[in-house]
Simulated assay, not measured.
Amino acid sequence: MTKKKSFVLRLNPDDYEALERWAADDFRSINGQLEWLINKALKDAGRKSKKTPGSK
C-alpha cells in the first residue's frame, strides 16, 4: 500500500463547515472529501500521474 503524506491545512470556519456538510452528503469523512476533491482537480487539470498504485 502507498504511504500517504500528512500535513496541516488551515481553513476559515465557514469553508470548513461547508466542506463538512458536503462530505456528510457524500458519506465521506472530511479527509476523504479533500482527497477526492484534490484527486478530481488533478485529473481535470491533466496533472494526475499515470503511475499505477505502489509504483515509483
Rank of each mutant, 00 (worst) to 15 (best):
A18N: 02
K43L: 11
A41N: 05
S49W: 13
S49P: 03
S55A: 15
K51D: 07
L42M: 13
M1N: 05
K3N: 13
K4N: 14
L42F: 13
S49L: 08
K43Q: 11
A45D: 10
K3E: 12
D25V: 07
Y16S: 00
D26E: 11
L9T: 10
I30H: 00
D26C: 11
R47F: 13
G46V: 03
W22I: 01
L37E: 04
L42G: 05
A18M: 05
A41I: 07
S49C: 02
D44R: 03
E17M: 09
L11Q: 01
R28L: 12
I38H: 10
L19Q: 03
F7V: 08
T2Y: 14
L19C: 06
I38L: 11
P13E: 05
N31T: 09
W36K: 04
L11G: 00
K48H: 13
R28D: 07
E20K: 09
N31D: 08
E20H: 09
R21I: 07
G54H: 01
W36P: 01
S29W: 13
M1H: 10
E17R: 03
R21M: 03
D25S: 06
K5L: 15
K48W: 13
S49V: 06
K40W: 12
W22T: 00
G32I: 01
A23I: 01
L11T: 00
L42T: 07
D14K: 02
E20C: 11
E17T: 04
S29R: 03
R21F: 05
A41F: 06
P13F: 05
E35N: 11
K5T: 15
S49M: 10
P53G: 03
W22D: 00
G46E: 02
D14G: 04
P53L: 12
W22E: 00
A23S: 03
R47S: 13
E20Y: 04
G54F: 06
I30P: 00
Y16M: 00
